[in-house]
């Protein structure tokens, strides 16, 4: 199943106004891996994610999804393979009802109505949002919105899940529910986040970006122990790896 592989080679990207987005990013993520992408605000995480589904085209360097280099010709296939969950669910849920929204992708794939119904039901069930199917998106809570947004992506049955800050603006309960959900997915996962606790929970591997460059790439726990590295990237140790201020005992 080599098409679950994501590979970036020496990616460079400069925004039209001259801002440097990426300056030489390379990595290879293989099938089934779960990778956290961390770094300070403006480090280039979102810019990088937008390269993975071909929304931005690198000024230099290549992205390979599976066996193909990403070009405008196979954009369609790539977007099918790479499911992207956006940071702001409101941008992702644009249809009048949850059902229409989840059905949007499968219908665009040209599936039959019966098949679409089935997929919608399955994806909503997976994220535990079956009861929301008739609701309009603006009446959902943040946590519900996020779940539905994930369902819209699952309905496309992608091989690779790319997520931008999935736990942002969720209450603690919704957050841990989401983490439990993500743990059950077998997809290759790339998660850009500031939530290092989640990264430690979900991702065995972490890539640290700093000013558009990869400054570290390795096992999550090892990287998170490197306080100097974290400090340089405006990050802090995950709470669970810090000394507990209340009971003064180490949790890790």
């Amino acid at each position: 199943m080599s098409h679950h592989i994501v590979e970036a080679q020496d990616l460079h990207y400069t925004y039209p106004d001259g801002t440097r987005g990426l300056s030489g990013v390379s990595f290879r993520i293989s099938h089934g891996e779960s990778v956290a992408l961390v770094g300070e605000n403006g480090a280039g995480k979102s810019t990088l994610l937008l390269h993975l589904n071909g929304y931005l085209a690198a000024t230099r360097g290549t992205v390979r999804i599976g066996d193909y280099p990403l070009t405008s010709k196979n954009l369609h296939a790539v977007r099918r393979a790479v499911g992207m969950v956006f940071q702001n669910s409101d941008d992702q849920l644009f249809m009048p009802t949850v059902f229409d929204d989840v059905a949007f992708g499968p219908l665009n794939l040209g599936l039959s109505e019966v098949e679409v119904e089935l997929r919608v039901a399955q994806s909503l069930e997976t994220v535990g949002a079956g009861h929301l199917r008739k609701r309009p998106p603006y009446k959902l809570s943040q946590g519900e919105k996020r779940s539905v947004a994930i369902a819209t992506v699952l309905a496309m049955s992608p091989d690779i899940l790319v997520m931008d800050e999935p736990t942002a603006s969720l209450d603690p309960m919704s957050r841990s529910r989401l983490i439990e959900l993500l743990k059950t997915f077998r997809h290759t996962k790339i998660i850009a986040t500031h939530d290092l606790d989640m990264a430690a929970d979900l991702c065995e591997r972490t890539i640290v970006l700093h000013q558009g460059k990869v400054t570290a790439d390795g096992p999550t726990i090892e990287l998170f122990r490197d306080e100097g590295l974290l400090h340089r990237s405006s990050l802090e140790k995950p709470l669970r790896m810090q000394k507990c201020p209340v009971c003064s005992s180490r949790a890790d």
Binding site: Y55, R79, R80, G83, M84, G105, T152, M156
Partner: peptide
């Protein structure tokens, strides 16, 4: 973009 990602 979100629409394009889902085959719009």
């Amino acid at each position: 973009l979100a629409m394009r990602c889902r085959g719009f």
